[in-house]
Design a protein around this nucleic acid. Structure first.
Lengths: 222, 222
DNA sequence: GCCAACCTTACATCAACCGTAAATATTAAT
DNA sequence: ATTAATATTTACGGTTGATGTAAGGTTGGC
């Protein structure tokens, strides 16, 4: 899952990036509104966190612009202010949630998961057949046995399962799971698909990930 | 469906080509306006994407020249500028749509499909009798059973169905399904027609593609 | 019957993908 | 700080599968 953080204080931005990467998110940072808007328009994020007070273009304006472009990506505000008007303003501008500074990291994380879950309609855990993925604990189970994955392996599998029954093209995988936008000249994806397949096979869950030659990969339900 | 991209930055051009080829488009690239115009005049594209700022001949001039030649091919502009005058200029010059740089690949793809659809008046999914083609997922169904096709097979069938009830000449087929690297004067088309007929036959959908001797092929509705 | 166009099959070529291993980067432990 | 362990990336030969070529067989029109 890929997040964008638009926050001008390097301290907070770094703190968030580190914390969220530990939770296996791919995180991009912009230090002002203009840059943030650019990134938001050029990439497909799964969630965007915007500070209220940022230079060049205000947070609320960034939010409006994103919505104006038709995007439905979940947006969360970080705000020092907490008066009623501000909240109303933020929600009117198209935000999905907001959190007051200072905040506990745990709370932010919980709210992020709520947004990502609602995006995925309903169910908390991700499934594909008898495979069960828990984004909160980063655990993967096939039937009763747990499969141990490294962070990148987990992120890749999570992405494929979230998009089950849809073909995941190489460009999209590299955008969402890695932070890369251009360099299409690498074979990391292949290697990680191999890693995943081996571990799944060993757990008795073979043939889950199918190759679509020249395009990408797909996990088919059933 | 065959596209022409006129874009001087190799990074962006390559990124677009890769992404669009994953979507089964045949893609040609020109790195300047002169070259682009040459290609546009000598080949029959289904859509042309032109960057505003390109060397030798400007994007807008390329667009004007194409229109002057009588072609109605959908043209999309990539533009860093976004002032009203530029848009008006672009549309006056005969463009069908424009998209601001930087842009999300998803959005570009959506707009491309809109242009291709409107060309085909209306319906989103392609049909011929009980055969159903989905350009978004690259799937083909006959009644309830899915037919698995390779990219070239798919592209050929898609073209024939988009032009159902019209005779598709060999040269037209080559123009739209293969790209500029194609070495004419071979029997690839015949071979792929054979491949398609076999797979369709196996799915119970025989006699769909008819031969018009000396001219080409046709799929008749009903 | 003759010719040209088309169909079919077999094979060659090329690019994508797989799998392994080695190199590099990161993290944890001493 | 150094070392060890683990994770990630790169490199590369082998394999597979899609695509293109060529050649011989078949069909249809004259």
């Amino acid at each position: 899952m890929r997040l964008l953080i638009i926050e001008d204080e390097p301290g907070i931005a770094g703190f968030l990036k580190d914390g969220l990467e530990e939770e296996y998110f791919a995180v991009d940072i912009a230090y002002d509104g203009k840059n943030g808007l650019d990134l938001a328009m050029t990439n497909e994020y799964d969630l965007i966190i915007i500070d209220w007070m940022i230079p060049v273009i205000s947070g609320i304006e960034v939010c409006r612009q994103i919505r104006k472009s038709g995007s439905l990506v979940p947006i969360m505000f970080l705000t020092a202010k907490d008066t009623l008007e501000d909240v109303v303003f933020g929600l009117e501008a198209g935000a999905n949630d907001y959190i007051k500074k200072p905040f506990a990291f745990e709370e932010l994380l919980a709210r992020i998961r709520v947004q990502l879950r609602s995006k995925n309609q309903g169910d908390d855990s991700l499934r594909a057949g008898n495979l069960n993925i828990n984004p909160g604990t980063h655990q993967v189970f096939y039937e009763t046995s747990e499969i141990t994955l490294t962070p990148k392996e987990f992120a890749l599998l999570e992405y494929l399962v979230r998009n089950k029954d849809k073909v995941c093209t190489r460009s999209r995988i590299i955008e969402h799971v890695w932070d890369v936008h251009f360099d299409s000249d690498t074979s990391v994806i292949d290697v990680y698909i191999t890693f995943l397949r081996r571990k799944l096979e060993n757990a008795g869950c073979g043939n889950l990930i199918q190759t679509i030659r020249g395009v990408g990969y797909i996990i088919r339900e059933s």
